[in-house]
Design a binder for these strands. Structure first.
Length: 768
DNA sequence: TCGATCAGCGCG
DNA sequence: CACCGTGCTGATCGA
């Protein structure tokens, strides 16, 4: 092959990709002021020789078109000008540093004289901006500057095709090319801090003329376990009272009783706005600066979530940057903040400014969202509902739940004694670390078996075929015990503060609106006695737990207006699974009926998330035809459900799915690869989301009725009350009544809802 | 040594 | 071939 350069400036002959790669260098007018840079040409580009002519280019065209940007005025290229050589087993290949370096002179020459540079994806953004920062943070906020050029960084269209919830980022960021409001920079807020008692009291006095205040606090949590455990030192309180105006009450002033008294009087009488108020409001209550959560009425984090249901886009810094064009104002404090540590070491003047900025930006964000709500009153309604939940979850989080440390220590010994001999035995057999999927695969490879993966399912199926392979049995036992030990014995112990755990419940942690729980997650504690027994009420108390029966199924029946299901639910003498089972299989003897019942449940519960016959056939080891027959028989009984599913399937292609609580689920970019997933997600969304709002509303009412809610898990609420027969009876009746009534109030009475209660001295042993 | 990512698995 | 939605742990890999 001729060692001829593919580009006059690139060091092609030194490039590892030189030999076998196809060149697709640049496209568009050489004099263009804007250049778009990707990573490397794809398969299509390697044939056409023109960058951005494949699927990514087409997607980009759609986005440019959406913003009215004329593609023919743009210049296009990639960091690497050549299509990567074929390498077996690798989907896409990121250009290695040597390739980028060889192509860099070519790329640099392309940048000369451009006023705007659009970087698509990590490779382009990192190369052009010479940084190691990732694209998901580089893309946020106003465009950056290098020399005389403006750099808009965003995700690569190819990434959007694989992961469709990245697509809104691409659309938004490309919009920055024409929506230049953010480019003009931003006006820093006017802030002042008051760290002596006298001036603090006088500024608090001045603030009394405002009706609404925005509050943000900084806490030194270094001394405590987690951000959400009690304790930690209050360092300052920031208050914003007008656009771009904020004050901060400092640490010294807060040590003065008159100041705190005046501050409490102020905060108690104002409508309060926060960013993630569940934290700030709870802390203000803990420090005695606020009586209760009732004045908390606007939350900019939750507001952001009502407009964009994707988790992970609602942080204050990101929003301030994206919406207000604020700079990275955290960079001043970051040198003083140790990883995982608190803000205690930050010099106070710097910390106070940071706190004031937080408050000021929260004020401006509130105005921003309030304006947007004028056009979207439904979303405002959702916001108010979320804040209502948030106000009550404050109490749930603050009270935490008691944890039995003695029993935890017992479990530690027990699991340790179970695991150690298993590990010794497996090591003798040549498997040194049973926790390593890699080593397990290698062990079986040596034995002449290639495993696709090492999941429980795979191991169990293999064990059934080869019961003489002792290791399989050991592995399965070890796997189970190891999970319990690491996550639910050792892991939980790490989260205990004094003798309680304080989980955080996120209202913005899922696309469906379900709550997420973390630090620790209390919503995935293993069912059964052993591990749940670690959670106990205070001495002299009991737990009362109430569960909604088949709530998602009942919601689906209601939403689909399925007459069969509605009929079954309205007649307490009918048993849905027996009835459907009989319909599918005919009448059979009792033993067979029980087996059929299990399978019928799979069809019925699988319905909500689009489970297919093949999966049921696989699970119960029955012929596919039989599973299909059963499934068809079931769906024939519920024509309303069938029609509703078809409706959802159509709707999600063109518009957002919505629940009656105005939750939205949008499918940003449907491709042939994700269409089936989107359909299943669509089917699951409405029942799951609606059931969640019913449960959270019931939780709100239970809390307001004075109950001590301990652990909410999607369709159940556990509370704690005195161990007294009269009290227990009242609480059971009342909690159950609240849950049933809430469902009726919110969803009507076409389908009745039920809630069964159980009582016990720990979470593992609830009965009745 | 540390962060990011993967595999695996717990719940409703 | 394929079940939706979460969070946590331990292994692994590359900077």
């Amino acid at each position: 092959m001729d060692k001829e350069r593919k580009h006059p400036l690139a060091k092609c002959e030194e490039c590892p990709w030189y030999e076998k790669s196809a060149y697709a260098g640049e496209a568009g007018p050489e004099e263009a002021t804007t250049i778009v840079i990707g990573e490397a040409p794809g398969a299509v580009e390697s044939r056409t020789g023109i960058p951005f002519t494949g699927p990514s280019g087409q997607l980009l065209d759609r986005v440019l078109d959406h913003h009215g940007i004329d593609r023919s005025e743009l210049r296009f290229t990639n960091v690497a000008a050549c299509h990567p050589p074929y390498s077996p087993g690798k989907g896409s290949v990121v250009p290695p540093a040597e390739v980028i370096a060889c192509c860099k002179p070519r790329l640099d020459s392309e940048l000369v004289g451009r006023s705007t540079i659009v970087c698509l994806g990590n490779t382009a953004a990192k190369t052009v901006l010479a940084t190691s920062e990732g694209i998901l943070s580089l893309r946020v906020g106003p465009p950056r500057k290098i020399k005389d050029a403006t750099v808009v960084a965003t995700v690569h269209p190819a990434a959007c095709l694989r992961q469709s919830d990245l697509f809104p980022n691409l659309v938004k960021d490309i919009g920055k090319l024409i929506n230049t409001d953010l480019w003009v920079g931003f006006e820093p807020p006017t802030v002042a801090s008051f760290d002596d008692a006298e001036s603090a009291r006088s500024v608090i006095q001045e603030l009394s003329t405002y009706d609404e205040l925005v509050v943000d606090i900084e806490v030194d949590v270094a001394a405590v376990k987690d951000l959400n455990t009690p304790g930690g030192k209050l360092l300052c309180v920031g208050i914003s009272y007008a656009p771009n105006k904020a004050i901060v009450i400092g640490e010294k002033a807060l040590a003065d009783g008159y100041v705190t008294h005046a501050l409490k009087r102020l905060l108690d009488t104002k409508k309060l706005t926060c960013h993630n108020g569940k934290f700030d409001i709870a802390k203000l209550m803990e420090y005695g600066l606020l009586s209760d959560s009732s004045s908390f009425y606007f939350d900019t984090m939750l507001a952001s979530y009502t407009f964009d249901e994707r988790p992970g886009y609602h942080g204050l810094k990101g929003l301030a940057s994206e919406v207000l064009g604020a700079p990275d104002y955290a960079d001043e404090i970051s040198p003083f903040v140790e990883k995982g540590g608190g803000y205690g070491n930050v010099p106070r003047p710097i910390l106070y400014k940071y706190c004031a900025y937080d408050a000021a930006f929260t004020f401006l964000l509130k105005e921003h969202f309030e304006r947007k709500y004028l056009d979207e009153p439904d979303l405002r309604e959702l916001h108010d509902r979320l804040v209502m939940y948030s106000r009550e979850l404050i109490y749930v989080e603050r009270e935490g739940v008691r944890f039995d440390l003695d029993y935890n220590a017992e479990l530690y010994t027990q699991f340790d004694e179970q695991l150690r001999p298993l590990e010794v035995r497996m090591a003798e057999m040549g498997l040194l670390n049973a926790r390593s999927p890699k080593q397990i695969k290698e062990w079986f490879e040596r034995a002449g078996l290639i495993l696709p993966d090492t999941t429980e399912d795979t191991l169990r199926n293999l064990y059934e075929r080869k019961p003489d392979v002792e290791l399989l049995g050991l592995l399965l036992e070890h796997r189970k015990a190891q999970k319990s030990f690491s996550t639910y014995v050792k892991g939980l112990r790490k989260r205990v503060y004094e003798d309680r755990v304080y989980s955080t419940f996120l209202l913005h942690g899922s696309v469906t609106g379900r709550t997420a729980s973390r630090n620790p997650n209390l919503q995935n504690i293993t069912r059964g006695v052993v591990l749940r027994k670690q959670f106990v009420p205070d001495p002299g108390n009991v737990f009362v737990q109430a569960d909604y029966g088949q709530i998602e199924l009942r919601v689906a029946a209601l939403e689909a207006e399925d007459e069969y299901l509605i009929g079954v639910f309205n007649d307490p003498s009918r048993d849905i699974f027996d009835e459907i089972g009989t319909n599918i299989y005919g009448s059979v003897e009792a033993a067979k009926r029980k087996e059929n019942r299990v399978r019928t449940k799979a069809y019925v519960y699988g319905m909500n998330y689009g489970r297919e016959a093949a999966s049921i056939a696989g699970e119960y080891k029955i012929p596919l035809r039989e599973a299909e027959k059963g499934m068809n028989a079931f769906f024939q009984m519920v024509p309303g459900i069938v029609a509703w599913r078809e409706h959802i399937q159509q709707e999600l292609k063109t518009q957002a799915l919505r629940t009656r609580f105005h939750r939205r689920r949008r499918f940003w970019l449907i491709t042939k690869d994700n269409r089936a997933d989107a359909t299943r997600e669509g089917w699951a969304f409405v029942p799951q989301s609606t059931a969640n709002d019913v449960t959270l509303t019931a939780l709100t009412r239970a809390r307001q009725a004075g109950m001590h809610v301990r652990i909410p898990v999607h369709d159940s609420i556990m509370v704690e009350c005195a161990d007294d027969p009269g009290v227990i009876g009242d609480v059971r009746r009342e909690l159950s009544r609240i849950m049933v009534d809430t469902a009726r109030d919110l969803l009507g009475d076409r389908v009745p809802f039920i809630a069964d209660t159980e009582v016990g001295y720990n979470w593992g042993e609830l009965s009745e």
